Simulated scan of single mutants.
Amino acid sequence: MSTVPEPGPSPVRPVAGEPARVVVLVSGSGTLLQAVLDACADPGYGVEVVAVGADRDGILGLERAERAGVPTFVVRLADHADRAAWDGALAAALARHAPDLVVSAGFMKILGPQVLDRFTVVNTHPALLPSFPGAHAVRDALAAGVTVTGCTLHEVDAGVDTGPVIAQRAVEVHASDTEGSLHERIKTVERAMLVEELPRLLRDPGHKTRRHP
């Protein structure tokens, strides 16, 4: 006898008239986070950072959140038996804040299925994907001799920087560029892109945000 499978949790749209609930994940200085926090100070922006999570203590990104009065949490890989246990703990921490969207903003850990099956996560990357995925995108772009690189906002999937592209911005590579100088110019454009695209993404009826208990 066949059985009808139970439906999974339904995608949740932000409640009309209320700001969209966003949790930001950080691992470092939190400059992308700060750009979003600054934008959220405008009530018309339509987005609220309801929590900031990290994979380590004592980072500037957490200090930025605390100064803004945003709740924080830390889920360290070293505190868990394995990566699957860490992924489950991170998913539980995210669920406590009921986000419409999770933003990985310089979060230097690969997310697992317990997070990705429950939440829509977007990430910014300092290259024009699919070119130069991974942790050394700016260095790799310089080594390849490209004259134009940039940044990408994409949905996170099980791969490394392989999820669907949401938006991209181009940045010219100068002959005198070092990895540091190029990365700084990319980060400026990356921050503006994230701030511009977040409300648009959350308003898009074709984009499925999820808020799973």
Rank of each mutant, 00 (worst) to 15 (best):
V173C: 04
T152K: 01
T149K: 06
D82V: 10
G180Y: 13
V148Q: 08
R203W: 07
I110S: 01
A84M: 14
P164Q: 00
P126G: 08
T149S: 08
V115L: 10
H207W: 10
A98N: 00
A175G: 00
G145I: 15
A51H: 07
P99F: 04
P43D: 14
R211D: 07
S131C: 13
V4K: 11
E155V: 15
P205T: 09
V122F: 12
V15F: 01
A41E: 15
S27V: 06
P126L: 06
P9Q: 06
V122P: 11
E190W: 05
G112R: 12
T72P: 02
S181W: 08
E196G: 02
G28M: 03
D42Y: 02
L128S: 06
A81I: 06
L128F: 06
V146H: 12
A54F: 05
R76Q: 15
A137E: 11
S29M: 09
D57K: 03
A81L: 11
L33A: 08
A143Q: 06
P5L: 09
L94W: 03
H80W: 15
V156Y: 08
H136E: 13
A84E: 14
R56W: 00
E196Q: 05
R67L: 11
P9W: 13
R96P: 05
V50T: 05
T147C: 03
A20L: 08
L32M: 14
M108L: 10
V24Y: 04
H80V: 12
A54N: 00
T147I: 01
V165F: 05
G145M: 13
T3I: 08
G163D: 08
V75C: 01
A141N: 13
A78N: 07
G28V: 00
R118E: 09
T162G: 04
S10K: 09
D42A: 03
T149M: 05
A170Y: 03
H174I: 04
P164C: 03
L129P: 09
D79E: 11
I166P: 03
P9A: 11
D157I: 15
A51D: 10
V102G: 13
A175T: 01
F119G: 04
S2A: 10
A89S: 13
C151A: 11
P213H: 07
P71S: 03
